[in-house]
Structures are given as structure tokens and as C-alpha cells.
Simulated scan of single mutants.
Amino acid sequence: MAAALETRGLVKRFGGLVATDNVTFRLEQGARHALIGPNGAGKTTLINLLTGVLAPTSGQIFLDGVDVTQMPPERRVQRGLARTFQINQLFPAMTPLETIGLAVSERMGGGRDWWRVTGSKREIVDEIVEIAQRFRLTDVLDERTSNLAYGKQRLLEIAVAFACRPRVLLLDEPAAGVPEAERHELLATVAALPRDVSVLLIEHDMDLVFSFADRISVLVNGALFAEGTIEEVSTDPRVRAVYLGENVDE
């Protein structure tokens, strides 16, 4: 079976700087995979390559076995690749109802008439309700997004990505900036994502990583430094030295 998402020899150079260094990576179908690494490791650059925001200097990217290296971002979304961002990209004046409705309607071809299409098609309304329930947003559906607690805003951003019906979902530090009191709701929701969606989690919060992932890849200086199960990576002395800052003898 083809990997849900795969890179082969992926390189990105900015002049003399090598931001992504020959990364060969495989995200299995249905995986719960975390990508970790110190600041400046190149995690966001790698995500931007996977989603088509940046073009690689060399190497290839495959989505469900199809080479998407030259595909623009919107085509990758149409083929089932969705992402969230470190800083949310939501419309502050819109409500969660409107935001999810726009995402669902756009996927169904509603375009600029999304508000009319949303109200006239029962399947869109049903899907909005299902997504709102899944992401614990039913109690705030009619509130302005700018008024939501930050944890709810992060849940809404994941909900919008989920509304694209992705087969691969890239979560870029979903817990960043979320207060401790709101983190449990986010953790539980992320953990409950359906298994037919393969998830790559980029995260600094190790509690989230350990509660979610069954496999971890460590990126250092743009290159894959280590990979394995939670136990293998967390007990690897090289990872502890580089990522956790511990002085561990080789």
C-alpha cells in the first residue's frame, strides 16, 4: 500500500543555507505521527514544502502514491492534504457557523454564494452540525470568532481543515498559545480524530506528542536525526541531548 504522504531526498536551499537536508520520510495510512525538533530545525519549512507553499530545490513529494511535487497548494487540498498553522488564519468577524459553512460549501462548489448554498442544502447543514459537535463548538456557533477563547479558536481552525475532508492532516503546533486550562479539550479532540485521516503533528508540547503519536520523527538542522516509537525516541540519548538539552554521555 502506498504511503499516505512520502518524501524522497527532499532538499530546500535558500542561497547557501540548507533548510531541508535530503529528507526521506513516510507517513503511513492512518498514522498518528509527530514531528519534533528544536527551534530552527526546519519543521515549518518542511510543512511548507509538503503543502506546496515552497517549491523544493530537489527531491519528490508523493500523496497517496501520486507525485505532487509540482502541484500548487489548492490542488493538493483537492487531493486530500489539509493543514493548520502556528498562528490561526481565521476571519475574526465571522462566527464558527459561518466559518465552517464557508469551508464545507467551498468544498462542494458553493464558491462566493456559500451563504445561500449553506441554507438551501440539508447535507451542508448536517455536516456543519456534525463537525461542530466533533470539535466541541456547538455552544459557540453564533459567537464572533474574535470573542472565542483561544483554545476554541484553535479547535475551529482544525475543524475548518477537517471540513476539507482530508486524507492527510498536518497540524502545525495546534496547542501553541493555548492556556493550560483549555488544553485538555484540545488534546481530547485531537486524539479522537477518525483513523481514516492520517495525521502528522508538529509540536513542542511533549504531553500532546506522547498522548497522541505512535511514531515520532526528530528533525535537527533540516535533516531527519532519529525516528521510531515513543519509547525508542524518548530514551535515545542523542535525542535527549539535542532536543531536551540534557548532557548524556554517548
Score class of each variant (00 low, 15 high):
Thr99Arg: 01
Gly119Thr: 03
Glu143Cys: 09
Leu90Phe: 08
Asn147Trp: 01
Gly151Phe: 01
Val125Leu: 15
Ala93Asn: 15
Thr95Gln: 10
Thr99Phe: 00
Leu97Arg: 15
Arg144Met: 12
Gly119Cys: 04
Phe91Thr: 13
Tyr150Leu: 07
Glu130Arg: 15
Gly111Trp: 01
Gln78Leu: 13
Glu157Pro: 02
Val104Leu: 09
Tyr150Asn: 06
Thr99Gln: 03
Arg76Thr: 04
Thr145Leu: 01
Asp126Gln: 15
Gly101Asn: 02
Glu157Gln: 03
Arg134Cys: 07
Gln153Val: 01
Met108Asp: 13
Trp114Cys: 02
Asp113Trp: 11
Asp126Met: 10
Ile100Asn: 13
Val125Trp: 13
Val160Thr: 13
Arg154Ala: 02
Glu98Pro: 06
Glu127Gln: 12
Leu81Asp: 15
Lys152Thr: 03
Pro96Ser: 07
Arg76Ile: 03
Glu127Thr: 10
Arg107Gly: 11
Glu74Gly: 01
Leu102Phe: 12
Gly109Glu: 08
Glu74Trp: 13
Ile128Ser: 04
Glu143Leu: 10
Gly101Gln: 00
Glu157Tyr: 02
Arg167Glu: 12
Pro92Trp: 09
Gln89Arg: 14
Ile100Glu: 12
Val104Tyr: 05
Ala149Asp: 03
Glu74His: 14
Phe135Asn: 13
Leu148Glu: 00
Arg144Gln: 15
Gln78Lys: 12
Arg167Asp: 11
Val104Gln: 08
Glu157Leu: 01
Gly111Asp: 05
Met108Thr: 11
Val129Arg: 15
Thr99Ser: 08
Arg76Gly: 05
Arg112Ser: 11
Arg167Lys: 13
Ser120Arg: 10
Trp114Pro: 03
Leu141Lys: 08
Val117Phe: 03
Leu148Thr: 00
Arg79Gly: 09
Arg83Ser: 09
Arg116Ile: 00
Leu81Glu: 14
Arg134Leu: 12
Thr138His: 04
Thr84Met: 02
Thr99Ile: 01
Ala132Thr: 07
Ile124His: 09
Asp126Phe: 08
Glu157Ile: 02
Pro166Phe: 05
Ala82Gln: 13
Val125Thr: 15
Tyr150Glu: 08
Phe85Ile: 02
Gln78Val: 10
Asp139Cys: 03
Arg116Thr: 00
Lys152Phe: 03
Glu130Trp: 06
Met94Pro: 02
Arg107Ile: 06
Leu102Cys: 11
Asn88Ile: 14
Ala159Met: 02
Arg165Gln: 10
Pro73Trp: 09
Glu74Tyr: 14
Glu123His: 12
Asp126Thr: 14
Ile100Gly: 13
Arg116Lys: 09
Gly80Pro: 05
Gln86Ala: 04
Arg134Trp: 04
Glu106Asn: 15
Pro166Gln: 08
Glu98Asp: 15
Val140Ile: 07
Glu123Tyr: 09
Leu81Arg: 12
Thr138Ile: 04
Phe162Pro: 06
Pro73Ser: 10
Glu157Val: 00
Phe135Thr: 11
Trp115Gly: 04
Val104Met: 06
Arg83Asp: 14
Arg116Tyr: 00
Arg122Thr: 14
Ala93Pro: 05
Ser105Phe: 02
Arg79Asn: 14
Glu130Gln: 13
Asp139Leu: 06
Glu127Pro: 10
Gln133Val: 09
Thr84Tyr: 03
Arg83Lys: 11
Ile87Gly: 01
